[in-house]
């Protein structure tokens, strides 16, 4: 009998997967589209990030104002969160820096470029919902975006990358799978 998927069951699965999530440098987490926000929020706040636990959260399809409310409500007592828009304030050395927008390839270059100026930061990165990149970016551009994340990992600008995706965009999902060392499937 198929188990009912809801916020509680995916969080439980995430908790069970914490060792895997902690160990791998490049992780893909696939989740039902109705629960992507729950999963992304959990992963940003979870104790899976190396070093000082700093996180750069690239929110593809949810703006900062909406994210701020979620963090205020659900992560009280947790990480300090800072919101940045590319071209405005650069992400600071805070616990979580949030950058949002659909044109991710440009965002990632801007955000990581600014981070590179403060090399002691070395945050990990969470990107969600990766499949939403397909709304405004060609497949080639998404491929290029993932390659840039790989480059940043190699250079040491980021210490870990966690991609969160639903399964609606088959080609983007396949690219994300090629990228990841480990996949945690919460889709049921």
């Amino acid at each position: 009998m198929r188990r009912l998927l809801n916020a509680q069951t995916v969080v439980m699965k995430l908790r069970q997967s914490l060792p895997q999530l902690k160990e791998a440098r490049k992780v893909l987490v696939t989740a039902p589209p109705t629960l992507i926000n729950h999963v992304s929020l959990y992963l940003v706040c979870a104790p899976i990030h190396p070093g000082a636990g700093r996180v750069l959260f690239l929110s593809v399809d949810r703006p900062n104002q909406s994210l701020a409310r979620l963090f205020d409500r659900h992560c009280a007592g947790g990480p300090q969160v800072l919101f940045a828009n590319p071209g405005m304030d650069p992400p600071q050395s805070s616990d979580v820096s949030c950058v949002s927008g659909l044109f991710a390839p440009k965002l990632i270059v801007d955000a990581l470029g600014q981070l590179a100026e403060t090399p002691e930061v070395r945050p990990s990165m969470v990107v969600g919902n990766v499949s939403a990149l397909g709304f405004y970016n060609s497949n080639d551009r998404v491929k290029e975006f993932l390659r840039k994340i790989d480059d940043k990992l190699r250079e040491g600008a980021i210490s870990k990358a966690v991609l969160v995706s639903d399964r609606t965009q088959g080609y983007i999902l396949s690219l994300a799978r090629e990228f990841a060392e480990k996949e945690v499937d919460l889709s049921g």
């Binding site: 589209p33 639903d166 609606t168 965009q169 088959g170 999902l173």
Partner: peptide, 16 residues
């Protein structure tokens, strides 16, 4: 699963 033949196409997730 790939959709290189129609890279621009995507479908919505739908709920009942």
């Amino acid at each position: 699963m790939t959709d290189k033949s129609n890279p621009g196409a995507s479908d919505f997730v739908r709920i009942k």
